[in-house]
């Protein structure tokens, strides 16, 4: 065994920073399974079969349940997050790609890509409350932390649809740049950050006026503009830094929220898709779709520590503290 100084050293450093063990669940689109990764050791622990074409993945607020959208089985599966035993199939509607969980009232909002609609599910009762028509190929979806709004981005219609949670009606549509992929609310629920894959852009929408208030175009040295295709986007709780995965540019852009500038470009695996924070937000994990691995990023040093092979086409991640 080439047990080397560095690994040991790194392990010690990691241990010092993060004494609590975390588990990352990664949905593997082409392996019909999820990977379970220990980020501390940088190790793939196991792979568990979940169903056909798993994509969207998230944990319940109390981290007891894991939900995985298995698109080709036309359902979202509910698992016990500790044992990974299957508990239920949620009536997600056709081809669920991804979904958002409300941390407040146990509602789940599902993007049904083929049917151009958003399904609202009561996860406890396992029933569909309503289905809301949106644009063609809805993908990115998010619930505001104050639980007032759900936003859904449709990739082909190129719009962000605003759904009021009180009435479950779509009350506004914002036209954005082509192929909006992912979106997220800021912690104060005042802004929505949306990425446009084709325009290589980040757009910030004001939740009050529903208008684009700021835009940021990404550039990477030595990489042509076509390769810069922003997908996953996250803003930290303190609203100091935001992170955008740039797809085939193999980079994660680190953005200073205050002045909206790119602080650093972090090199990760090929075609980086979705990203997730560790529970303490000291680390960021990225699913790299084409290189079949996830990258682990130390956010204090802004450094990619390591990349761990997980399986074919990692799509999304959920982090269990």
């Amino acid at each position: 065994m080439k047990k080397c100084l560095y690994v040991v050293g790194l392990g010690v450093v990691l241990w010092a920073f993060n004494a609590e063990a975390e588990t990352i669940f990664v949905s593997l689109e082409k392996d019909n399974s999820i990977a379970v990764v220990d980020p501390l050791a940088g190790k793939l622990l196991k792979t568990v079969a979940v169903g056909r074409r798993p994509r969207g993945i998230a944990l319940s607020a109390d981290a007891k349940f894991l939900y995985v959208a298995v698109s080709d089985d036309n359902t979202i599966k509910k698992f016990n997050a500790d044992t990974l035993t299957e508990l239920a199939d949620l009536p997600s509607g056709n081809d669920p790609e991804t979904f958002a969980l409300s941390q407040v009232d146990k509602r789940m909002y599902v993007s049904n890509e083929d049917d151009s609609q958003v399904s609202v599910i009561d996860v406890d009762k396992n029933t569909v409350l309503t289905r809301i028509p949106v644009g063609v190929e809805p993908e990115g979806i998010a619930v505001s932390p104050d639980n007032k709004w759900v936003v859904s981005a449709s990739e082909t219609t190129n719009m962000v649809h605003w759904i009021e949670t009180k009435t479950y009606t779509r009350v506004a549509n914002t036209l954005v740049d082509p192929r909006p992929r992912a979106l997220t609310f800021t912690a104060d629920s005042k802004q929505v950050w949306v990425t446009s894959e084709m325009a290589g852009k980040l757009m910030i929408l004001d939740a009050k006026t529903k208008q684009i208030i700021k835009e940021l175009v990404f550039e990477v040295d030595g990489v042509t503009a076509e390769k810069i295709q922003p997908v996953g986007v996250l803003v930290d709780k303190k609203m100091q830094r935001a992170y955008v995965a740039l797809g085939p540019a193999n980079r994660i852009a680190v953005i200073n929220v205050a002045n909206l500038t790119v602080e650093k470009m972090l090199l990760v695996g090929a075609r980086v898709w979705n990203i997730a924070f560790s529970a303490d937000q000291k680390y960021l994990y990225s699913a790299n779709g084409l290189s079949n691995d996830i990258s682990i990023i130390d956010l204090e040093q802004l450094k990619v520590i390591r990349s761990v092979g997980v399986g074919t086409n990692p799509w999304g991640l959920a982090v269990k503290p």
């Binding site: 990477v220 390769k227 695996g269 290189s291 990349s307």
Partner: peptide, 17 residues
């Protein structure tokens, strides 16, 4: 311009420029 990073090979733990 190997700007898209070189694949991981020991001793590197992640992608490098």
């Amino acid at each position: 311009r190997a700007a898209l990073g070189l694949a991981i090979a020991p001793p590197y733990d992640t992608y490098i420029l």
